[in-house]
Design a protein around this nucleic acid. Sequence first.
DNA 1: CCCTGAACCTGACCGC
DNA 2: TGCGGTCAGGTTCAGG
Length: 289
Amino acid sequence: MDVLCIIHLNHLDPHDTTMPELPEVETTRQGIAPYLINQTIDHLTIRTDKLRFPISATLKKLSRCKISGIERRAKYLLLITEKGTLIIHLGMSGSMRILTEITPPKKHDHIDLVLTNKTVLRYNDPRKFGCWLWVTNNLHNHKLLAELGPEPLNGEFNAAYLYQQSRNKKIAVKKFIMNQKIVVGIGNIYANEALFLADIHPSKEAKQLSQQECQQLVSACKKILKQALKIGGTTIRNFSGADGNPGYFAQELMVYGRKDMPCKKCRTLLKEIRIDNRSTVFCEICQSI
DNA sequence: CCCTGAACCTGACCGC
DNA sequence: TGCGGTCAGGTTCAGG
């Protein structure tokens, strides 16, 4: 038996694993795409009806349907078929794996997408915050996709854009960059990391950002995400085995999960506060308000 | 518009 | 060993 675990996301220790922010979703996409493109779905096996949205009856009965592509928009995977598109979100704890034969499902293995060649895409999601949504028309006008901001690695996400969007916004810059209408794909970990890299205090009001700070922040977001993507990609290429633990979390975190530990720039002990009820770690010396 | 808090769900961990 | 409280990657919604 050969079980290839594409990505494993459901540990809790941030130093041991990785989280479904944009790089993890993109890594998942790249990992599963070769097994799915131009293959035909035989059927889906649904073992729960309680993901973020109920599974549609059409999806439950889907069969003989060719997959033409797998795309990503923000943290959504888009599985494009000749009959419609599957919008998949991993939520907080979702993960995918490819099986080369059907094995007994383990706990929280909620969905199998079974191909006619017997390959299985298996979805596991302990917290059930993810979704599998079937859409047959106007994909990009769908409410989940219509109002999303630019992709962070596109040129459209630049200092001028961020400066313009931040005018008159009193909210904390950390919450601002985590708003998917402003820019997609920045979750809690990378928001912390990007603000540290940009030397900006996470509580700073968005409207107080200078043009230069906007430039620093845009550059920091791109740098952090590119670095994470590079590591994810490496993992996929190198991984083999069935234990589900690629052991690749070599991503060096500068602040997230490092409360009371020394700042890697100035050795001052890092502070933790809560912004929008999310853990926020920063250096009060390096990051100016 | 802004902001806060809660909701969805399960599991891990900590202190007692 | 168990129990209760808290926390965790995301997103949406109600209420002030």
